[in-house]
């Protein structure tokens, strides 16, 4: 089954291509935007900026620590650096550099972690970013953005540039179907979007799990379960109000993410719900495991990141209400 098919969503191109287009559009509008690449511009699609604005694109090479430091220096000169590489390489090779030069300094730099999650597939676990929300979560000054479709990627890139301060933005290799019309996406940092209304259970998704959540909602509807679906595109600052309202209205929550359960979006939502309006919760994500090389579709099934898994979790959460 195609992601978003059950929900009738229109397919799109890989999200990384959308990211490249969005970054280029931003660079055209804003001369302060500069792009720093760790020799992966062809994969992340940041190279679209290189072709048009070579003077504002720096390939710093396979040297992520230096990459982050150079970017931070540019931010100190009132430019807006987008530091782009694979999520895993940036956060794991340059964690300390991001910590000092961006997070503690609290400067206006943007870190884009491409190839987030497991859906880069065949390159295997060394390249996958399954711990990025947890790692960036360790930097208290960072906003964490996880767009779920082409329109929200465009909005997120723009919002990242407009936000004064450190931003992490996750991009992905796979195609995510259209959830929002291209010209009508209500994206704002820290304001979750309710993309489907419902009163029996709320499915909170990030990234590709929003489309999977909409598929799940369509399947649950056939069983008479009316699911609300929330696009939690900002993991920090978290939209407490929308989440607590969903807990109050529906009495049951499912969190779904392409990330480790440990330290991921769901564990942060659970902290909020436990404090303000405790209801039964279930979690879809990676249990304590790495993931091998394979076709993304096979991996999603094997590691329980499909709409079917969300349906099972939602039923369990609804049952737990009684």
């Amino acid at each position: 089954m195609q992601l978003g098919e059950k929900a009738g969503l229109k397919p799109s191109v890989p999200l990384r291509d959308v990211f490249g287009d969005a970054l280029l559009a931003l660079a055209r509008e804003n001369p302060q935007v500069v792009v720093l690449d760790g020799d992966l511009g062809n994969s992340t699609k940041a190279e679209k900026v290189r072709f048009e604005f070579p003077e504002r694109f720096f390939n710093i090479g396979i040297a992520e620590s230096n990459l982050v430091g150079v970017g931070a220096g540019l931010a100190a000169c009132d430019l807006i650096p987008f530091i782009v590489s694979f999520s895993s390489f940036l956060l794991c090779n340059a964690y300390d550099q991001i910590r000092l030069s961006i997070a503690i300094s609290n400067i206006n730099a943007k870190v884009v972690g491409s190839h987030g999650g497991i859906t880069l597939g065949k390159d295997g676990p060394t390249q996958m970013g399954i711990e990025d929300f947890a790692l960036v979560g360790g930097f208290p000054t960072f906003a964490i953005l996880v767009p779920s479709d082409p329109a929200s990627m465009h909005k997120a890139v723009r919002a990242a540039a407009e936000h004064e301060g450190p931003v992490f933005l996750r991009s992905s290799r796979i195609a995510m179907p259209h959830i929002y019309p291209m010209d009508d996406c209500p994206f704002a940092i820290g304001k979750a979007s309710v993309v489907r209304d419902g009163g029996d259970v709320a499915i909170v998704g990030s990234g590709m799990m929003v489309a999977a959540g909409l598929d799940a909602a369509a399947m649950l509807a056939a069983d008479g379960i009316d699911a609300r679906v929330i696009d939690l595109h900002t993991i920090r600052p978290m939209d407490v109000e929308t989440l607590v309202t969903a807990a109050r209205d529906t009495g049951a929550l499912v969190c779904a993410e392409e990330h480790l359960l440990h330290g991921g979006m769901g564990s942060n939502v659970a902290r909020v719900i436990a404090e303000y309006h405790a209801v039964p919760m279930r979690f879809v994500g990676l249990a304590d495991t790495y993931v091998e090389s394979a076709d993304p579709a096979d991996l999603l099934v094997k590691y329980h990141l499909t709409a079917d898994d969300i349906v099972t979790a939602a039923r369990a959460a609804v049952d737990a209400k009684r």
């Binding site: 430091g69 150079v70 970017g71 931070a72 220096g73 000169c77 030069s101």
Partner: peptide, 10 residues
């Protein structure tokens, strides 16, 4: 030193 390069680019 990396920060210094950033300031030079700036």
């Amino acid at each position: 030193l990396s920060l210094g390069i950033g300031h030079i680019f700036g």
